[in-house]
Amino acid sequence: MADKELARVRGRFVEKVSKALIKQLLDDLLEDRLLNDGETDSVLEDNTGKADMARCLIDMVRRKGDRASRKMIQHLENRDPTLHSELGLTCKPTPGEIPAPQNQHAWSNSLVTTTDSFWNEKRKSKDVYAVSDESLRSRVALLITNRNFANERLTRKGAEKDEENMEKLLRSLGYEVVKHNDLTAQVLHTFAEHPKLRDTDSVFVVIMSHGKRECVFGVNHSEENKDEFPVDNIYRHLGPQECPALMNKPKIIIIQACRGETGGSVLVSDSASAKVVSDDVSQQLPANGGGKIVDDAIRYVHKEKDFISLLSSTPAHATC
């Protein structure tokens, strides 16, 4: 019986489980309707320490019988397989029950966090960037969204939705988000002086605008007024020379902008006599003229498809 399994590992569960995992298990059991709101609140609010919360949770579930206990064991295995294995838990289905399919991963609209054991293991590794509790509290990200341009034809309709989703993602990862909207090309200078950069363990810079190969456009950009921000300036402003606070820290740059005016795909045919039908992606699929072209033999492929490029130096720098 599953409730006896929980009784067997009770002491080690109380010792090893984290507070974050307790909350996750409570959420799972609440969603299964095996616990109610009052019971979940009782576990968290009526107990001062992590160990007492763990004792309260496992005893509460055990008293509810085999089904609730089996569900908790299953959720523990999904949430923290390492702890589940360390406890040596087993949960055989009752007669007539169909076991749940294994290795099925459903899509989620919310961030799925890693297991505590994996997180703690990586934090202690010398092969990853150092992360501390202080650096987690000091994480900071820059989010620039240019939607409304002086030239109304360039208005990026729907950009506010991209901004909303990106901000949600960054905040869920623990970053304070410094937001700017509808900017000209002068902005990154001030971010490089943000007071939290000294203590953060990493930085995100997200820029969403129009652009071309080596530049992102400010909102005043036009043919006459080149309001451009060179992408290379990001590396200069946040590099060790101008921003030593970010030395030896990951700096993740995300740019949502065009890098030219031509399409990135070509229209190709499976026919041996016509490898490329057109490199103009605006062209419609050609009509079937006299049976010479078969519609389902024509498709678009990316121009740089299947390339892997390894360069010995970064742009504009000599190979040492």
Rank of each mutant, 00 (worst) to 15 (best):
M166W: 03
L183D: 00
I98F: 00
M1W: 09
S312D: 07
M1G: 15
C91G: 14
K305H: 01
L310P: 02
G218K: 03
G174E: 12
P250C: 14
A318C: 06
E45N: 10
T94C: 13
R62T: 10
V206A: 00
Q284N: 08
A316D: 01
F307T: 05
I254S: 13
E242R: 12
L25E: 10
G174L: 09
G260A: 06
K305S: 01
R147I: 04
W107H: 02
E214S: 12
A130W: 08
I252V: 15
R70T: 13
E193I: 01
I22S: 03
D66I: 01
A316F: 01
N248M: 13
I144Q: 01
D133V: 00
V301K: 06
F307D: 08
I293H: 10
K92Q: 13
L143E: 03
H84F: 09
C243A: 11
R259C: 12
D296V: 00
L267G: 13
E242M: 13
L76T: 03
Y175R: 02
V203L: 09
A2M: 14
S273T: 13
V112N: 03
D270I: 07
H84R: 06
E97W: 13
R79A: 09
K122F: 14
V266L: 11
E45F: 09
L89Q: 04
C258Q: 04
K71H: 10
T113I: 05
Q256Y: 08
E15D: 08
S138E: 07
T314L: 02
S172W: 00
V281I: 03
V206I: 05
K157C: 01
R198C: 02
D296F: 04
C258H: 01
Q74L: 15
P230M: 07
L34K: 09
D280T: 09
I253A: 08
D52R: 05
L34P: 04
R62A: 13
D32A: 11
I73P: 06
L83W: 04
N109H: 05
E176V: 11
K251I: 04
T184K: 05
E5P: 13
A100H: 13
M60V: 07
I58D: 10
D66C: 05
G291Q: 08
N146L: 01
D232H: 14
K303R: 12
E176L: 10
K16I: 10
V294D: 15
F13M: 04
K23A: 09
K161M: 03
G260L: 06
G291E: 07
K226N: 14
K305G: 00
L267M: 15
H180M: 12
I98Q: 03
H75F: 11
